[in-house]
C-alpha cells in the first residue's frame, strides 16, 4: 500500500533524525562537571568542628578545583544557635544548647577567582569581632565554575 509506505518512510526518517541528534550530543562534549571544594586537605581552614576565637583574625584557606575553569567563591558565616544545620559533613560536632542570638557574627563575602584557573586556593583574612555572641556557627562555602555549575559545603564551627 502506498499509504503504508509513506508512513514507513516517515518513521524511518524520524528514527534517523533522532539517532543523528542523539549522536551529535556527544561530539562537542559540554562541561557537565561540578567544581569541587576540598575541606579536608591539611592546609584547608576552617575544617568541620574547627574553633575560632573572638577578637582574633584567622586566614580562611579554601581549596577549589574544576575540570575546565573556575568562576568565583562566596563565603558566609552565620549562627547556628537554633541548630538549623547546614553542615554537609558526615562528622557531627558537639553542639552547645539552643540559645537566642543577641549579636551573632554575620559575614557574607564574594571572592572572585582570576580567569583561567583550574585549581585555586583562596586565602582570605577574616576578623572575628570581640563583641559578638560565642557559640555554634556555620561556615558556608560556595564555588562556581565558568559555566555556572555550583558546589556548596557547609561546615559546623565554634567561636569561643
Amino acid at each position: 500500500m502506498k499509504q503504508v509506505k509513506i508512513l514507513k518512510t516517515l518513521c524511518i526518517t524520524i528514527g534517523i533524525a533522532a539517532l543523528i541528534a542523539g549522536c551529535s550530543k556527544d561530539k562537542d562534549a559540554k562541561d557537565t562537571e561540578y567544581p569541587t571544594i576540598d575541606v579536608t586537605a591539611s592546609v584547608a581552614f576552617p575544617k568541620q568542628c574547627s574553633e575560632l576565637t573572638r577578637g582574633q583574625k584567622f586566614t580562611a584557606k579554601i581549596l577549589v578545583a574544576d575540570n575546565a575553569e573556575l568562576g568565583s567563591v562566596s563565603i558566609d558565616v552565620h549562627h547556628n544557635f537554633d541548630h538549623h544545620s547546614h553542615s554537609t559533613e558526615v562528622t557531627e560536632c558537639n553542639m552547645a544548647a539552643v540559645k537566642t542570638p543577641v549579636k551573632p557574627f554575620l559575614l557574607v563575602k564574594s571572592i572572585p577567582i582570576p580567569a583561567g584557573n583550574k585549581s585555586y586556593t583562596v586565602s582570605e583574612q577574616i576578623n572575628v569581632p570581640s563583641d559578638i555572641d560565642p557559640g555554634d556557627y556555620h561556615f558556608m562555602i560556595r564555588v562556581t565554575d565558568k559555566e555556572g555549575w555550583q558546589t556548596m559545603k557547609g561546615l559546623s564551627i565554634k567561636i569561643k
Binding site: G71, S72, S110, P112, T144, D145, G148
Partner: peptide
C-alpha cells in the same frame, strides 16, 4: 541563566 558570579 546561572552565572559564575556571586553577589554579596
Amino acid at each position: 541563566n546561572p552565572t559564575a558570579q556571586h553577589d554579596y
